[in-house]
Design a protein around this nucleic acid. Structure first.
Length: 267
DNA sequence: ATGGTAGGGCACCTA
């Protein structure tokens, strides 16, 4: 079984590339982030005509997460328990469309779009940290209660956990950039402390291995990227992993997302 | 010259 995660940066702008990728990648489950669509604008037929069931969670033109599966799609959950809310005003404050869960072929899959943080002193940063802490607390409880649970937390984590996960750590520090700060890295590390495993890194060691390249500044041709998309597996799932790849080819050419798909092979 | 691209939706926000 093959499972994958991909921040597509608009499901509508990327429809043709996503369809072509599904056909050649042959994945059984795809966790999608940044659909940037409401349900009424979601291209359901794209998945159905290629043999995938799909569940989507989208509230506006921002965020949006989905799971497509050809090995079953059950017990769909939109938002995780106690998911922190965010908004500019009281009326617009909601649990955003950043998490959707489903059981696919016996694996509990979560498609996650972790808040960006925006700037180290922005209100979005404490929101990001609280969001991660709440998710970690629940995910840790899920695997404690059920140690045999095959669980995959996959998506765009908006954190580069190691210095080698960015193209120039000194440049990032000089910018006072997000994604590399100690609190963000600590929030990520707490998932590992709880028993989750980065199942992709052993098969794709760095340095110079990334999942995201900014559209500006010719970052992709200059190989200046960031590793911020991860699949964290429960101990039980991690034992089943036989391989993983980052599909850097998909970042090439006109109309590419700024993120590459990340694929994990399970026995 | 202090940006540089991309997307959604139609002014400007988000990344």
């Amino acid at each position: 079984m093959k499972i994958a995660t991909w921040n597509v940066n608009s499901i509508r702008a990327r429809a043709d590339r996503i369809e072509a990728w599904l056909q050649r990648s042959d994945v059984d489950v795809l966790a999608i982030q940044e659909t940037k669509a409401k349900d009424e604008n979601f291209p359901w037929e794209l998945f159905e005509k290629n043999g995938y069931e799909v569940a989507h969670f989208g509230l506006s033109q921002w965020n949006g997460v989905a799971i497509a599966s050809r090995v079953g799609l059950d017990d769909v959950e939109r938002t995780f328990p106690d998911q922190p809310k965010f908004g500019k005003t009281e009326e617009t404050t909601v649990a955003e469309a950043r998490a959707i869960g489903a059981t696919c072929g016996g694996v509990r899959v979560w498609s996650l779009y972790v808040p960006n943080g925006r700037a180290v002193d922005d209100p979005h940063m404490p929101y990001k940290l609280e969001w991660l802490k709440t998710l970690k607390n629940h995910a840790a409880q899920w695997i404690t209660e059920n140690p045999s649970l095959d669980l995959a937390l996959m998506g765009d984590w908006n954190i580069a956990p190691q210095d080698d996960d960015v193209w120039d750590i000194d440049w990032f520090r000089a910018q006072n950039a997000t994604h590399i700060t100690d609190p963000e890295r600590q929030a990520f590390a707490e998932f590992l402390d709880a028993g989750f495993v980065d199942v992709v890194r052993p098969f794709t060691p760095g340095p110079g291995v990334y999942t995201y390249w900014d559209y500006t500044q010719l970052r992709f041709p200059k190989r200046q990227g960031m590793r911020i998309d991860f699949v964290l597996g429960s101990p039980s799932l991690a034992k089943r992993v036989t391989g993983a790849v980052i599909d850097r080819e998909e970042r090439k050419g006109k109309g590419a997302s700024d993120h590459a798909p990340v694929i994990v092979e399970l026995d």
